[in-house]
Design a protein around this nucleic acid. Structure first.
Lengths: 105, 105
DNA sequence: CGAATCCATAAGCACGTACTTATGTGATGT
DNA sequence: ACATCACATAAGTACGTGCTTATGGATTCG
C-alpha cells in the first residue's frame, strides 16, 4: 500500500482524525485523550495504534503512562498528493509548488 | 459534516481515488473510465456520484454521454486542513503558509 | 420503429472495521 | 504483599459501504 493510501484510510475516520487534531495541543497520555471523547479507552488505544502505524503519531513510554505526540511530517505524502493537483489550480496558487522546490535546496 | 470530513471519506477508497486520478488526464466519459478498471460500470457510476457530491468532479451531459471533469478546487478544504499542520513542520517549510497569504492579496 | 448504446438507480450481498466488554501486563502506591 | 492504575490486546458484534446483477430511462442508429 502506498503512503497516501494508508494516510487517507487512517484519517478517514472522524474519531481518529479528532484524536489526531487533539494532539495538536501537545503531547498527551491516553487518559488525557480519553476525556472529551465519548468512546472507551480501548477505542482510543486502537486509534492511536492506527495513527502510529501510519506515522502520524509517536509514542514515548514513561512508567505506566504512554505519551503520544503529533508527527506532522507524517502528513508529507498526503500534502504531496494534494500538491500534484495544485498544478491544475489557478496560476497564482500553482506557483507554490515551484517555490517549495526552491526552498528545499 | 465538514468539508474535510467528506473529502477524507470520499478519497479513502482506493478505486474511487484511482478514478479521480485518472480524470487528471482530462475530461472523460463513464465508458472511457471503465476501460482500465476491473470493476463494473455501475461501480464507476457510483464512484463518480460520490466524487461529484464531494465537489471533486463536475458532470456535463451530451446526448447519451456523461462527461466527467476534474475539479481540483474541490481539494481546497483538504489542502487547508493539511496546511494547519505545516505550522508544526520544520521552519523552512512552515514559511510556506505565510507566502501563500502574501500571494493571496 | 426497433435494436443497441450510455448511463443511472435499485436491491442484495460480502466484507472491512470501529466499537464494545473482558482480560492481561506492567508500574505505582499503601 | 496486595490493590490500584494506565494501557494494550482479544474476541465478538453491529453497521457502513463497495461490489455485484438486474433493470429502467434516455439517446442514437439502422
Amino acid at each position: 500500500m502506498t503512503a497516501e493510501a494508508e494516510l487517507f484510510r487512517t484519517l478517514a475516520d472522524p474519531t481518529r482524525r479528532a484524536v489526531f487534531e487533539r494532539l495538536g495541543e501537545g503531547e498527551m497520555t491516553v487518559s488525557d485523550l480519553r476525556s472529551g471523547f465519548s468512546v472507551s479507552q480501548p477505542a482510543i488505544s486502537q486509534h492511536l495504534a492506527a495513527l502510529k502505524a501510519a506515522g502520524l503519531v509517536s509514542e514515548r513510554r514513561a512508567g505506566r503512562n504512554a505519551y503520544y505526540r503529533l508527527r506532522p511530517e507524517g502528513l508529507t505524502p498526503l500534502a504531496g498528493w494534494v500538491d500534484r493537483y495544485r498544478t491544475f489550480w489557478p496560476e497564482r496558487i500553482g506557483k507554490l509548488k515551484e517555490l517549495l522546490k526552491d526552498m528545499d535546496q
